[in-house]
Computed example of a mutant assay.
Amino acid sequence: MEFDLSWILLGLPVAFALGWIASRLDLRQLRIENRQAPKAYFKGLNYLLNEQQDQAIDAFIEAVQKDPDTSELHFALGNLFRRRGEYERAVRVHEHLLSRADLSQKDRDRAQHALAQDFLKAGLLDRAEDALRKLDGTRYQEQAWLTLLSLHERARDWAQAAAIAGRLQTAGQADFSARQAHYLCEQAADALNKKHDPSKARQLLQQAIDQSPGAARPRIQLAGLLAGHDDWHGAFEQLAKLEHHAPQAMPLVASELVRIGHASGQLARGRQLLERSYALTPAVDVADALVQADVSAGVPLSEAREGYVRHMTQEPSLIAAGRWLSHEPFAKEGAHPAVQRSIEHAARPLARYRCAACGFEAQGYFWQCPGCQAWESFPPRRIEEL
């Protein structure tokens, strides 16, 4: 049987025509998809600008399905999920991005940073820490370190926090020496209260003083440690050094200076320190401590209480008025308790401390604000004096 070449000659044009038609159909479909994907993207953007997040998510999902290789759509979708609190879906989007072999290094770093934010928002702190550590050497490195610093502070892992703060300082982000001193003070408190190791606590506090001589907390904490072991002279010397190194903190230790000065036989010197501090910046706590010092030195209470009056002539103070009134006789019998209670009730809010960063108020002084976690954001003055 002879092979008929006429069939081949006849079939070639047909095959060519079919291939051409198929290619045209593919191109047409590609054009349609390319037109639809931007349309869906811009539709989602429009919804987003109008704060219609549900419709925006639907539009972005449609766009991603039509063009799964577009990373920007994935980032937009993942960010929307996170803002809505759908952290699991946000994690899946960003993990999908990281699994792509064709993703550029820039987008890979961006996806890693977004994934870390997903874990943070979801409260998965261990996974967030792992994701943040993978950002070393990227353009997100400093941001990741700052977030890690916050995580370690919240976990009260002071050694890790100190290590991260050291890296940030080396990188030139800021001066973290004052914060490092706080970390050492926290470790000293743990050594004393949890491990019952006063020698280790003292060593850490001395290290904090050497590292940040202008910090008030290490000297105050060390004075308390020494006083707790009846080293009254050493405790007094630590508080006395605040006059030169951290004079703004004197109101915080005024009463303690009187107590320790009396125990160490240096009450007169303590009173001189308080007088100099008050002359620079009149404070109700220092005025109160001066009254206490006079009473401890044997001055009659009626005379010592004049210190409150002297303070009120300089700085009007409901707190000082209440303390002066507490020992003032009344002409009308029985009126004193009611008046005293009323003044103390009115003065109580004024005797609080207030965070300058977030406005959190507290009866006691905090080195780190319980509200916003800022360090040394509480001025060492009562609200009444601010």
Rank of each mutant, 00 (worst) to 15 (best):
Q207W: 02
A208Y: 12
A208P: 10
I209L: 07
I209C: 04
Q211H: 10
Q211A: 11
Q211R: 13
S212E: 13
S212F: 14
P213M: 09
P213V: 06
G214I: 05
A215Q: 06
A215P: 06
A215V: 11
A215G: 06
R217V: 00
R217G: 00
P218Y: 09
R219S: 05
R219D: 03
I220K: 00
I220W: 00
I220E: 02
I220R: 00
Q221E: 12
Q221A: 14
L222N: 01
A223F: 03
A223Y: 06
A223P: 01
A223K: 01
L225G: 01
L225W: 05
L225A: 03
L226D: 12
A227S: 07
A227M: 00
H229T: 14
D230H: 15
D231Y: 09
D231T: 11
W232Y: 04
W232A: 13
H233F: 07
H233S: 10
G234K: 03
G234Y: 01
G234S: 02
A235H: 03
A235V: 01
F236S: 10
F236D: 09
F236T: 06
E237Y: 05
Q238E: 09
L239E: 01
A240P: 01
K241M: 15
L242K: 03
H244T: 15
H245A: 15
H245D: 15
A246C: 02
P247I: 14
P247K: 08
Q248T: 08
Q248I: 05
Q248D: 12
A249S: 15
A249E: 10
A249Q: 07
M250L: 15
P251S: 12
P251T: 13
L252A: 12
L252M: 06
L252G: 04
V253L: 02
V253Y: 00
V253W: 00
A254K: 01
A254Y: 04
S255L: 11
S255T: 09
E256L: 08
E256H: 01
L257A: 05
L257P: 05
V258T: 08
R259T: 09
G261P: 06
G261S: 06
H262E: 11
A263K: 13
A263P: 05
S264I: 05
S264E: 02
G265F: 15
G265S: 11
Q266C: 08
A268I: 04
A268M: 10
R269L: 11
R269Y: 10
G270D: 06
G270Q: 05
G270P: 02
R271V: 07
Q272A: 08
Q272H: 12
Q272R: 10
Q272K: 12
L274R: 12
L274T: 15
E275C: 07
R276D: 15
R276W: 03
A279I: 11
A279R: 15
A279H: 14
L280A: 13
P282M: 05
P282A: 02
P282Y: 03
A283G: 02
A283C: 09
V284G: 01
D285Q: 08
D285Y: 03
D288W: 09
D288H: 09
A289I: 11
L290H: 09
V291A: 10
V291K: 08
V291G: 10
V291C: 13
Q292P: 10
Q292H: 12
Q292R: 12
Q292A: 14
A293L: 11
D294S: 08
D294Y: 03
V295D: 09
V295R: 06
S296C: 14
A297R: 06
G298M: 02
G298T: 01
V299Y: 00
P300S: 10
L301P: 02
S302W: 03
S302F: 05
E303T: 14
E303A: 13
A304F: 11
